[in-house]
Amino acid sequence: MRLGLAAAAVFAATAATAADRLGDVEKGAAIFAQQCRSCHEIGEGARNRVGPQLNGIFDRKAGTAAGATYSRNMVRMGSDGLHWTLATLDAYLANPRALVSGTRMSFRGLQDPADRADVIAFLREYSAMPQNIPESAPTARKTPPGIDPAVLDIKGDAEYGEYLAQECTTCHQRDGSDRGIPSITGWPEEDFVIAMHSYKVDLRPHPVMQMMAKRLSDEEIAALAAYFGTLD
């Protein structure tokens, strides 16, 4: 149940809120002050703290703020093509680890789509102003993925999942090493489901994973999750 709800939150948000409306800058500033500012600075003279400074975050390649400390996965995602846009920021704020496994950002996520829209509107104040630069990335809204939250509650066939998982270990190392290719052992089931759907709708970059995810049905992703859930 927990899994289904978390997943639904991400995709309902991605599908509707981010694309349909921008939030309230004032409210976003208040949320930022409460929940983000202990680690992130923004505005004039902002420096990197525990997390990177957030000036110019829109259209920035993930993991590239000069001098900031990042997880290896975040840098890899950037190299693979992850850029911060309305859609990717919305997914990341909803559940950071679901978009970037192994991120250093220890944050449980903003569940309310309206809160995320407000924070994103606030962050936009410190990036190129899209109303003045119509062609800049934040206005290039992504087609909403439109995933039905119901499919995320599917109970998976673990035995089928074990068979499907054989395809993963051609590249992902069985011993959990993450040399060159991220580790897939020992991570939460819900993160897995959301990650695969994120590849499926191209929110996460990487051509091989996008291809592998797109050929998996919702039932098959659920089967893989069920199998991974049986592992220690």
């Binding site: 890899r76 693979d80 051609t170 590249c171 992902h172 190392q173 069985r174 040399r179």
Partner: peptide, 17 residues
């Protein structure tokens, strides 16, 4: 560079497989 590093990861993965 990332693609090259990925190929090293794949090599470790498939030979273990």
């Amino acid at each position: 560079r990332r693609t090259y590093e990925e190929s090293l990861g794949w090599y470790a993965g498939i030979t273990a497989d």
